[in-house]
């Protein structure tokens, strides 16, 4: 895809009212979700999770174990959905793919020299093809934050477009790493570039940098998706990742998605949570709702 003619115009006038964002976000957090609504909401959250392990110490054994957990979240209890996908490094894609055959769980792979993205275009393309060739259904790429902050927006655009092409049928999630972009204006600008360059999903963070998926940042990105949809009628997915570890916060995020984008986005085709410890907290809340007893982490798997 080539850069649109009015690219620079599209990126100007995108200033965000930070105080307004904070007020609106605070209002989402006052919603009280109880009983049946909470029950359904929690199950929906589970089904939207990308169970993630992105560590230097990952081994095939750990990845297989996580894949097993992805579709056996809590076997002693019936009616619990599987998660949406597992997210691993490219070298682990083959193992995850093998472990998840005959299930609905997708395999996502990070690429483009994750998490820093400090490498050449060639290496990033090879990295992406490696993951796709091994069977990744989804690719999570990182943008070049250094170039973005230096104002080289066209470079960032071209990079995303090239990776999108290398993805083939795999869906592309573009990680903005909002913790390094410093302002909400930048978050909005980066969202815009990613969407124009062909991202299927935009994603907040790698999980390696704090702050990660704050509600303010997610809100700003959701608004970019909404404006794009209003203009073109095309849907883009959203994935907050990092820092969402409690059910309450996850439910607040769902409320926000529903109220900004509407029900069409409330499925794992268009909305995901990138998290590793969220699943257990949601399971504990779910069992508390059903049994009336507060639960203990002693009775749930250690990820």
């Amino acid at each position: 895809m080539s850069i649109p003619r009015d690219f620079n115009l599209l990126l100007s006038n995108l200033s965000i009212d930070k105080v307004g964002v904070e007020e609106r976000v605070a209002r989402f957090q006052t919603r009280s979700i109880k009983n049946e609504a909470k029950h359904q909401g929690l199950k929906m959250v589970l089904n939207m999770i990308d169970l993630t392990t992105l560590e230097g110490k990952d081994t095939p054994g750990k990845v297989r174990q996580m894949c097993y957990k992805a579709h056996h979240l809590h076997d002693t209890h019936s009616g619990i959905p599987s998660v949406a996908a597992v997210c691993v490094y490219p070298t682990m894609v083959g193992i995850a793919k093998e472990a998840l055959k005959n299930t609905s769980v997708k395999v996502a792979s990070v690429s483009t020299a994750f998490p820093a993205g400090q490498s050449s275009m060639e290496v990033k393309l090879t990295d992406t093809r490696l993951a796709v060739d091994r069977g990744a259904d989804e690719i999570d790429m990182v943008i070049s934050r250094g170039k973005f902050l230096a104002g080289e927006y066209a470079f960032v655009f071209d990079e995303i477009a090239a990776i999108k092409e290398a993805c083939g049928p795999a869906r592309l999630k573009v990680i903005l790493e909002t913790g390094e972009l410093s302002t909400l204006d930048n978050v909005r600008k980066a969202s815009e570039i990613a969407i124009l360059a062909g991202a299927d999903f935009i994603k907040t963070s790698t999980g390696k940098i704090q702050p990660a998926a704050t509600m303010q940042v997610t809100y700003t990105m959701l608004m970019a998706i909404k404006d794009h949809y209003d203009k073109t009628g095309l849907m883009v997915g959203m994935k907050p990742a990092g820092g969402i570890s409690t059910s309450k916060l996850a439910l607040h995020n769902l409320v926000m998605v529903k109220e900004i984008l509407g029900s069409a986005w409330l499925s794992n085709e268009w909305f995901r949570f990138g998290a590793s410890s969220l699943a257990n907290d949601v399971l504990m809340q779910l069992l508390k709702l059903e049994s009336g007893r507060y639960q203990s982490s002693d009775y749930f798997t250690i990820d």
Binding site: G292, R293, Y294, Q295, S296, S297, D298, Y299
Partner: peptide, 8 residues
């Protein structure tokens, strides 16, 4: 009773 039923 809440404390007695608490799994943790």
């Amino acid at each position: 009773p809440v404390l007695a039923a608490h799994m943790d």
